[in-house]
Design a protein around this nucleic acid. Structure first.
Lengths: 197, 197
DNA sequence: GTCTATAGGGCGATAGAC
DNA sequence: GTCTATCGCCCTATAGAC
């Protein structure tokens, strides 16, 4: 395995662990275990836990923005309306959930805006998201806010793992209202064995 | 000062600290300092850090649901439509931001759904929010989802402290689009001295 | 009730072998 | 490049005085 591959392996594992436990709650040892390497190696590879988290955020943001761009390219040939654009961005966004850790690690960073190191990075990321949706995708500010609102609700529903209470009828009603066509993904995330039922 | 007052003092301080740093990142020492008491006393008062966090969540959820109910009472006499109800709930929700810590401590709990202790509590809280909005306030599931979407966006914008970059024009545009009439509150939260400018 | 002092455990980071 | 061993710090929780 080449160095770049091992680096990507650790980054992917770290995104999941940071997404689940938050920046402070995640341990470099848990990341190392998830990646199948030793704890000191994780630290040595990135210099520090903080630097590892920043690398995770950069990678997650890149994937998110790429997803937005490919969504725009999907419907872009026919100069679509705001609603069509926003709907397509939303669909691709939900598919991102399959790559556990990307959206949740970003969300964990967003909740640490008061941190003197992470805060500025999180705000810069948030601004990049806004500009990409407005300038590259071509959404109006109002449409961007709608997309972001739905996205933050989805992030929260995934973060709280509400689908774990799927047997509860009100949970089903809420999830099916919030994600009319994409509930299956949430159920997969809550319980990998329940995807087919 | 009576015991119940001191308890409320510690709970209020804890809500802010947990909201800013997350459950793991918050230290009982920081809570104690914010409340002006000693660190061991905070632990003794609630038994453990986990029990303190759970008390914070219970208090925060109670205040949130009370806010929803008072919003409904505000417009309730004239059997209002869904849009009017949802708008009133949204207005009162934003006013809750003045009580720093309430919404953010809940949000921090929502991001820890994978935690075996906090996860079930967070999910139960989420379900109570949904049922209150649907059954007591009388919103349709679709209207509840709209209210929750906007709420999660606001929580995230406050958590990331985007208003700290107020001099950035795109930040102004985003915040004024997301909270047309209530931007002042975000600016107060970002910088207590900037409320009048 | 509330404090000071401190024990005990976990985690990030370093040293150094291979 | 990758590991094992370990240091030193910080944080929760306990002991015990007042």
């Amino acid at each position: 395995m080449r160095g770049s591959e091992r680096r990507e392996l650790v980054l992917s594992a770290a995104a999941e662990v940071f997404g689940e436990r938050g920046y402070v709650g995640a341990t470099t040892d848990a990341v190392a275990r998830a990646a199948g390497v030793s704890q000191p190696y994780v630290v040595r590879m990135f210099g520090s836990k903080a630097a590892l988290f920043e690398a995770v955020l950069e990678r997650s943001l890149d994937r998110l923005l790429e997803t937005f761009r490919s969504a725009a390219a999907e419907v872009g040939r026919s100069s679509p309306g705001q609603q069509e654009l926003a709907a397509c961005v939303g669909r691709n966004y939900v598919d991102l959930l399959r790559d556990r850790g990307i959206l949740l690690s970003l969300m964990q960073a967003f909740m640490l805006g008061a941190d003197p190191e992470i805060g500025p990075i999180a705000r810069a990321g948030w601004i990049r998201v806004y500009r990409t949706l407005r300038d590259e995708i071509g959404l109006t500010p109002e449409a961007v806010v709608d997309v972001l609102s739905g996205g933050m609700l989805i992030n929260t529903l995934v973060g709280v793992r509400l689908a774990a209470d799927w047997e509860e009828p009100d949970v089903r009603e809420l999830l099916e209202t919030a994600l009319p066509t994409k509930v299956g993904i949430l159920r997969e995330l809550a319980d990998p064995d329940a995807s087919g039922t």
